[in-house]
Nucleic acid binder design. Structure first.
Lengths: 162, 162
DNA sequence: ATAAAAATGACAATCATTCTCATTAGGCTT
DNA sequence: AAGCCTAATGAGAATGATTGTCATTTTTAT
């Protein structure tokens, strides 16, 4: 029995619920709390992460969505900043198969993803039991836990995905 | 509070317990069960995955470990085959940060990893409670589950890692 | 306003992974 | 055992995401 591969990219038309919008001053204080200077480019990147409809965006998505405001923005700037925010835990980086990394703002509750390997739909979920087990496991192995990745892959219930 | 990044590569000196060796005929029947032709290159790749001391190896590791037998082996062959085996569920692919993908033979019980972000040590663990929750979650969301990724990252208890 | 430090952006470089395609080898059939 | 069909290999180029470099610009503390 052959296990199907993830599609190269996500479909563009699968939306998940847009997340809460953060105000500009929220975004600014995020930056200050990281001891990072407040620049318009960075605010734009944060806004691009924060605005719907897609909540899990690639560096390229961000790049393209702020190009209208900053025609000279470089990929380096986008990548550098996404990496910085993920180091600080402001964003999280989703790595799925060999597709480009996707980033999301961690403004919502801690959650995980279940991804449809056919249509690319992403659904978020939380599970307290699993979180408790994670704490237990790291304690048992004497690890000081920094972060974790937990992603489920399968086929959603759309007829075209079965 | 800044969350440290994973080191670019794993340290080479952290060993985890070598896994059970598979006989050549085991490996051959693995290939036959996938309807893949039995070639010496493929057997070598499987052996490279199966032999210790590292159980989580990159395509490059494999490439280098079989170069003595096949000086003309190409990366395409290695990647192609690793991808194939992972599609068939014979190997699993570990993607950690932006480091190259690591592969392991799925000859042992299903398990997950806890990875030290300082020294690269990888410890395997199992957790029945989590597995049950995974089944529940996919049922709740009406997903037919194909596979899942679950990796914990932190610092192990070695003094140099704290 | 000014200086020090950090951020930006143009562009090149890196490097893992994939593609192409001519050649070779595996595993049937006879 | 020879031949055929098809899959597998490997040489090399191509791709594409990500990172590095460094001169220039911007931010922010003073």
């Amino acid at each position: 029995m052959e296990i199907p591969q993830l599609p190269k990219g996500y479909t563009k038309d699968e939306l998940i619920e847009p997340r809460t919008k953060l105000s500009e001053s929220n975004l600014k204080s995020m930056l200050r709390s990281m001891n990072l200077k407040v620049t318009n480019q960075r605010l734009s990147i944060l806004k691009a992460l924060n605005k719907g409809p897609k909540s899990h965006v690639t560096a390229k998505d961000v790049f393209e969505s702020i190009r209208s405001d900053y025609p000279h923005i470089g990929f380096a700037t986008v990548y550098r900043f996404l990496k910085e925010t993920s180091r600080f835990g402001i964003t999280s980086e989703l790595r799925i198969g060999h597709a480009p990394a996707r980033y999301e703002l961690k403004v919502r509750e801690h959650h995980h993803h279940i991804v449809c390997t056919q249509c690319g739909k992403i659904v978020e979920f939380q599970n307290e039991i699993i979180e408790r087990q994670i704490k237990k496991i790291s304690k048992d192995h004497q690890f000081f836990l920094e972060h974790h990745i937990f992603e489920l892959y399968g086929r959603c219930n759309r007829s075209s995905c079965k």
